[in-house]
Design a protein around this nucleic acid. Structure first.
Lengths: 332, 332
DNA sequence: CATCAGTATGTATTCGCTTTCTTTCATTAT
DNA sequence: ATAATGAAAGAAAGCGAATACATACTGATG
C-alpha cells in the first residue's frame, strides 16, 4: 500500500493539514515543523497522489494535446515545443493521435475533458461542426496550434501561410518563370485550399500570368504519391518550368521524379517549398524553402494556453508568427 | 459547475450507484432503468470525472511514456506504435521528454508515478543506477522499449542490434571491401558501444580483416556533425572504401560529404546504415539499410505492458523483434 | 402460500488530498 | 497585566466517483 499524507502526519505527529501545507509550500508552518515533516516524507518515501490532489483542488496540472499524427515530423516538432513550455510551467501532457478523423477528434476531446485536463491544444486541418460545438461547451481553454480557426473565437497560433506561399511563388516569378506548377497536399485541408493555393493564385494573377487549371496537382501529402505525380507533370499540355510544393516531403518526391527522369534542378526546373523537416537540407540540391517555425508554433501555443489557464488577460488571441525564406540550390 | 453523477441520479430518480452501474456497463440494471438513466446522461451532458473515478478505483487508464525527444522521428514513430495500441486498450498516454538526462529521467519517473499511471514505457540509451533503483520501487509495470536492459529484470522490447550491425558489415565485406569505416553515434550510448560497434568488430574480425582504430568515427548523431566528419574520413591514413553508419541521418551526412566532395556512391564508396526515417529512401542514391521496425517496437511494448498491467502471465518479458535488410543503390 | 434464489436498487463508506473554518498560542501594544 | 493581532496548527467538510453491503423486489418451486 502506498504511503499517504496520513502516514506522514502520524509519523511526524502533526495533522494532515500541516503536511499538506509543507508539501504545497504554504508559509504558515514553523521552520522546525517543516523540517520534521520533510524528514518524515523523505523517510517514508511519501509521494503525493496527484489524482487525489486533482479531485480536491480541481486542477490536474495536465493539458491535453490532440495531434493528427505524432509520427509526422511536422507534428513531432510542434509537440516538442509544446512539451518544453509545458515542462517549464510544470504541466504534464496527455498526447493523442486523431488521424484527422472528425469523429475521432470529437471522441478525443470528450475523453480529454473527462480526464479533467486544465487546458487543451488542438491541431488539425479544418474544424468540423461537431468539434466546434464540442469545443464551445468545454470549460477549459483550448488553443489551436498551426490550425486555422480565426473564424471561431478560439485562440490560434499560426504563420501566414497565404503570404508565405505568395512570397515563394513570387520568387519563382521574379526568376522569370511563367508556368509554375503547384503540387499541393489534399484540398480537403483548409490550409491547402484557403491559404497556400490562394497565395499561389494571387502571385500568379498579380504578375498577369495565366492560371492553368492543370497546373494544380493534388497529392495525398506523401513522398511516394508526389514521386508518382511527376509522371503527370511531365505530360502536361503547357510545359511548366518551376514547381511550388506544399511541403518538403512532396517537393523531394517531385525532385526525385525529375532527377530519376534525367532532368536537372534547378536548370530544367526550379523548386521551392515549405520546409517541415530535415529533408530540405539533406537532399541534393538542397531545397529553397519557406522555413516554418514549428517548434515555436508549439511553444507559443503552450505559453498562450498557460496564460489562458491562469485567467490572465491576453490582448490578441490570434497570434501570427514570422517565417522566413531560405534560398538554397533548388532555385537560382 | 460540471454535471456530476449525483445530478444524473436525481434527474433519473435513482441512486448514484445505479448511475454508476449504467456508466460502467454493469448487467444488473433493468433495461427500462438503464434507458432512463442513459437519457438523463445525454440530456444533462454528463461526462464521468476520470479523476474521481481514478481515486475511487485506483486505476487511471493512463500510462506514462518517457521518451528522449519526441521531435526525433525515431521516437515519434515508436511512440505512434505505443499510442495506437494504447488506444486499442483504452489507455491514455502521458508523454514526457527526458533528453536522456539521467536526473530528468528520475524526475519524470517520479512525476509519472505520482500521477498514478497504471504502467510506464521507458526509452533511453542506458539506465543510470538511480533510475534502476527508482524503477525497482515502482509499484506498476514498466517496459523498456528499444532500450537495453535485459540485465535488469525489467521487460524489454528490442531488435538484435548487434546481429543487424554484423549483417550490414558482412554485406560490405562480401562485396569485397576490406577497409570499412564505422560512423557511429555517441559511445556513451549502450546501443552504440555494446551493440552496433560490437557487431561491426565481430564481422571485421571474423573475416580476418585488420581492425583499424581510426576507422571508428564518433558523431553526436546529427546530420551536420556527420557531414563535417567526412573531412576526417577523407584524411585517414588507411583509405576506406565503404561506410557503415549508425543511422540514416548520419549516413546522409556522410553521403552528402562524399558527394559534395566530388566522389560517388556506390562507385567510390559503398554505404550501409540503420534506417530510422524516410531519409534513406528520399536521398539519391537511396541507401541500403537495416530497416528497424520502430512502429512495431512501440506497439509490441505497449501490448506487453497491457498484459503486465492485467496481471497476465508473460512467458518471455525480453522480446526481440525481427528486422530486415533492404538492398538499395548505395551498395552494389 | 411460504421459501428461496436471483435480480435490481439503495445506503454508506472510502479513496487521498485541498481548503475553509476554528482554535491555540505567542507577540506586541496599551 | 490585558486586549488585540497574527502566526501556527488542527478539525472537518468536501471533491466525484466506485463498491461493499444491505435491502427490496421478482419469480419459480414445492
Amino acid at each position: 500500500m502506498a504511503v499517504t499524507i496520513y502516514d506522514v502526519a502520524r509519523e511526524a505527529n502533526v495533522s494532515m493539514a500541516t503536511v499538506s501545507r509543507v508539501v504545497n509550500g504554504n508559509q504558515n508552518v514553523k521552520p522546525a515543523t517543516r523540517k520534521k515533516v520533510l524528514e518524515c516524507i523523505e523517510r517514508l518515501g511519501y509521494r503525493p497522489n496527484a489524482v487525489a490532489r486533482g479531485l480536491a483542488s480541481k486542477k490536474t496540472t495536465t493539458v491535453g494535446v490532440i495531434v493528427p499524427d505524432i509520427s509526422k515530423s511536422y507534428y513531432a516538432e510542434l509537440s516538442r515545443g509544446i512539451a518544453d513550455v509545458a515542462t517549464m510551467y510544470e504541466y504534464n501532457i496527455i498526447l493523442s493521435n486523431s488521424d484527422k478523423r472528425a469523429t475521432r477528434e470529437v471522441e478525443l476531446l470528450e475523453d480529454h475533458l473527462g480526464k479533467q485536463v486544465d487546458g487543451l491544444i488542438f491541431m488539425s486541418d479544418s474544424l468540423s461542426d461537431e468539434i466546434r460545438s464540442e469545443m464551445a461547451t468545454a470549460n477549459v481553454p483550448i488553443v489551436l496550434a498551426g490550425t486555422l480557426g480565426a473564424d471561431t473565437d478560439l485562440p490560434t497560433v499560426n504563420i501566414d501561410h497565404e503570404e508565405a506561399a505568395y512570397e515563394a511563388v513570387k520568387k519563382l516569378i521574379d526568376n522569370g518563370h511563367e508556368r509554375i506548377v503547384h503540387v499541393s497536399g489534399p484540398m480537403s485541408r483548409d490550409i491547402n485550399r484557403l491559404c497556400k493555393k490562394v497565395g499561389y493564385e494571387r502571385a500568379v494573377k498579380e504578375a498577369g500570368l495565366p492560371l492553368f487549371e492543370e497546373f494544380f496537382i493534388e497529392t495525398d501529402n506523401t513522398y511516394d504519391d508526389a514521386y508518382e505525380k511527376w509522371s503527370v507533370i511531365r505530360e502536361l499540355k503547357e510545359k511548366p518550368t518551376a514547381i511550388f510544393a506544399g511541403n518538403d516531403e512532396i517537393a523531394v518526391g517531385v525532385l526525385n521524379g525529375i532527377r530519376d527522369d534525367g532532368f536537372s534542378v534547378p536548370d530544367d526546373y526550379e523548386v521551392i517549398c515549405f520546409q517541415h523537416t530535415l529533408l530540405s537540407r539533406a537532399v541534393r540540391p538542397q531545397l529553397t524553402a519557406i522555413i516554418v517555425p514549428l517548434y515555436d508554433l508549439g511553444a507559443v501555443s503552450m505559453r498562450l494556453l498557460t496564460k489562458l489557464m491562469n485567467g490572465e488577460e491576453v490582448d490578441d488571441v490570434n497570434v501570427i508568427l514570422p517565417y522566413h525564406k531560405e534560398d538554397r540550390q533548388s532555385t537560382k
